[in-house]
Design a protein around this nucleic acid. Sequence first.
DNA 1: AAGATTATTTAGATTTGTCTAAACTTTTAA
DNA 2: TTAAAAGTTTAGACAAATCTAAATAATCTT
Lengths: 221, 221
Amino acid sequence: MTLAEENYLKAIYHLENQSSNDVSTNALAEEMQTKASSVTDMIKKLAEKNMVSYIPYQGVTLSKAGRAHAVKVVRKHRLWEVFLLEKLNFSWDEVHDVAEQLEHIKSEKLTDKLDEFLGFPKVDPHGDPIPDKHGHIEKIDKTSLTDAQEGVTYVCVGVHDSSSDFLKYLDANHISLGTTIEIIHKEPFDNSVKIKFNDAELVVSENVAKNLFLQEVSHNS
Amino acid sequence: MTLAEENYLKAIYHLENQSSNDVSTNALAEEMQTKASSVTDMIKKLAEKNMVSYIPYQGVTLSKAGRAHAVKVVRKHRLWEVFLLEKLNFSWDEVHDVAEQLEHIKSEKLTDKLDEFLGFPKVDPHGDPIPDKHGHIEKIDKTSLTDAQEGVTYVCVGVHDSSSDFLKYLDANHISLGTTIEIIHKEPFDNSVKIKFNDAELVVSENVAKNLFLQEVSHNS
DNA sequence: AAGATTATTTAGATTTGTCTAAACTTTTAA
DNA sequence: TTAAAAGTTTAGACAAATCTAAATAATCTT
Ligand SMILES: [Mn+2]
Ligand SMILES: [Mn+2]
Ligand SMILES: [Mn+2]
Ligand SMILES: [Mn+2]
């Protein structure tokens, strides 16, 4: 698998996880920041290699082999993100771009030794689960802040959007993974949410709320 | 600089350090494991970008910018080799191939943070010096075992050939960087050398001797 | 100082990944 | 239930990096 092919497999993988429908050419073009015609060309090559199944005009789905390869790339991406944050003191908004390059290094030994060196982390700096050596992914149960309930207390466990802009917004407002958040008020007019954490209150927009993942604090501990 | 361009710059850099003449097309082709015609094409592109100066039929030399870039790639290569050995427990014959990939990752921050994480190492696992952030290289003074003198005691400080075959030969014979070696006898007939280390004697061929770098043990310590 | 040999460059293809513009399907909506 | 709109594919081009085969330049040999 070439670098370009791997990036396509990963993009298809992410899109499949978002909607359950076949992945359309245009959706892939959007995700890959390229033109639909380029996508069609690449899709054909991936179909030729049995990494996807493809019906013209109907979109594309990953084959077993394609998904396995995509998961390997995702595993590497997230392990490197942990390395950059934990060992080299990068901030969580800096890790993604470098991981985009490191995820293509070909060495199973490197990947597995890195995993071990990091202590077999379960999640990356954005709260996304890290596939293990065999491609198994432990599903993390999380709720979007938009679906949280007034009066209930949650812990922040992830972000949907891991763009630098969003992560810097969270930094500026002192929200990070592990922050305990209480839902004070959900405003029906604009779907903004007033939350309380570290003894301070903050109103966040619907856009922010959509991209913050929470887990209800268990009451039996 | 693309990956291919960087590999050419590095190859020219290595060849320049070996002979002081201009680098010939064929020498480059040999080093790059490619055809002379491909080399000519690439050389022209590098000349276009002012990374080398090139006179047709006369060979090529690195420009200031070209050398600076080559040194950056070498720095990354050697830092990653140290990382793989020290942090991930790779053996010294395994690090090179993976470092060949990692040396192309583009992030100055990554390189410098890695350097810091490793404690600013001076040499890589094969005894080669690691350029600092500013491209400065501390010359290491070393003698080939072929130039060593009978009766004198040395420390092994590096290898010329870092192929897996040679390094495994050294492992099998318990020679590593830091090993103290006494020269027992130099055989004029075939240039083999009888050496003594760890209370055992060993005869090594000229080929081995040529590729082992030593430093005389100082007598004032 | 030719003539032969070796080294290097050019010419013309090929593969990968991309693009624009045009053609073709599918979906939407009158 | 057609016509317009939206989505997708094909045709033809291009840049990067490589190759083979042919042409040209440099060098060695007698
Ligand atoms: Mn990421
Ligand atoms: Mn991530
Ligand atoms: Mn190496
Ligand atoms: Mn090395």
